[in-house]
């Protein structure tokens, strides 16, 4: 499958602090890929590098085959960008901002924008600066949909949104991607939302890519196991983030259920009861990256 975004040996530092080293990943066309990671793992750094707002210390990053730090106007036209916090021009009202952006995009679909604006119940003369965070998010989304780009890059789309606006955002995004050749690269702090949306999951840990897998595969294979062993269990390479709190242990693994249970039993002195659980994406994220 054709890669729409490709990062090769990406390394970045802020001063002496290493954000990541030799990061490699590529994103296929036509998928929604979620970039997950704890605070400070480099999600926004990655988004900035992808949009050419940050030159990496070393390595290459390509979007539609072009180096991300020097995207041509034609390529920029194919990319829709949502900045963290749904940032837009606050001095415009909802009609003025549409008029402004429409001049830059030949395939502008204003009906998409105004359909969303009708739902907001705000006056045409209302300034964006006077809108709530939720309303601003809809303005930003409407503009992105009207641009009709091939690739959407969304930095923390759920920031500051109540559940209703988050769901509205997700519903519209899903419809957008259903159209041919649309791809989305998205980050969010609220991982529950991502579960409803993303096809692929790219998880960053401090300094590296921890995992890049289809969300379905992750949700069907990654399990949590709990047992009361008073801390006797010592995890091996197949188990993630084993933690014992007040004599109760929990660990996570990609191993098939039976095999995982056999391995756990082998390491326990007594035949404790082992409970295995299917997990939400948020639990999977915590299982892979740890709570701290």
């Amino acid at each position: 499958m054709q890669a729409i975004i490709e990062c090769k040996n990406l390394t970045h530092y802020y001063g002496k602090r290493c954000i990541y080293e030799n990061l490699n990943f590529s994103l296929p066309k036509g998928k929604i890929t979620g970039l997950l990671g704890k605070n400070g793992t480099g999600k926004t750094t990655t988004i900035n590098i992808l949009n050419g707002f940050l030159k990496p210390y070393s390595g290459d990053c390509y979007i539609f085959g072009e180096p991300s730090y020097s995207l041509s106007p034609k390529t920029k036209e194919r990319i829709g960008l949502l900045l963290e916090g749904h940032i837009q021009y606050p001095f415009f009202d909802i009609v003025q901002i549409e008029k402004f952006y429409a001049s830059f995009h030949p395939g502008w679909k204003k009906e998409y924008y105004f359909e969303l604006m009708k739902k907001l119940n705000v006056s045409e003369k209302q300034k964006i600066s006077k809108m709530s965070c939720g309303q601003r998010s809809q303005v930003a989304l409407g503009l992105l949909l009207a641009q009709d780009p091939e690739l959407l890059i969304l930095d923390d789309f759920s920031m500051g949104l109540d559940p209703g606006y988050r769901r509205l955002f997700i519903d519209y995004l899903k419809e957008f991607v259903k159209a041919e050749n649309k791809s989305v690269f998205i980050t969010s702090h609220i991982i529950q939302d991502m579960e409803l949306l993303i096809d692929d999951c790219l998880i960053l840990d401090y300094g590296k890519v921890l995992l890049h897998k289809p969300t379905k595969e992750l949700m069907s294979r990654f399990k949590r196991y709990r047992f009361e062993d008073k801390g006797a269990f010592k995890s091996g390479t197949d188990f993630y983030n084993t933690e014992t709190i007040m004599g109760k242990t929990e660990t996570y693994s990609f191993l098939p259920e039976k095999e995982a249970i056999i391995q756990i039993r082998e390491k326990l002195p007594v035949n404790y009861e082992i409970i295995n659980e299917s997990l939400s994406l948020e639990d999977i994220f915590i299982g892979l990256t740890g709570k701290y």
């Binding site: 106007p73 900045l83 940032i87 837009q88």
Partner: peptide, 17 residues
Amino acid sequence: PEISNFRIKLSLHLPLK
């Protein structure tokens, strides 16, 4: 207004050099 919240990124992302 362009530098607050790094809004200049919106302008620089417009399909022009």
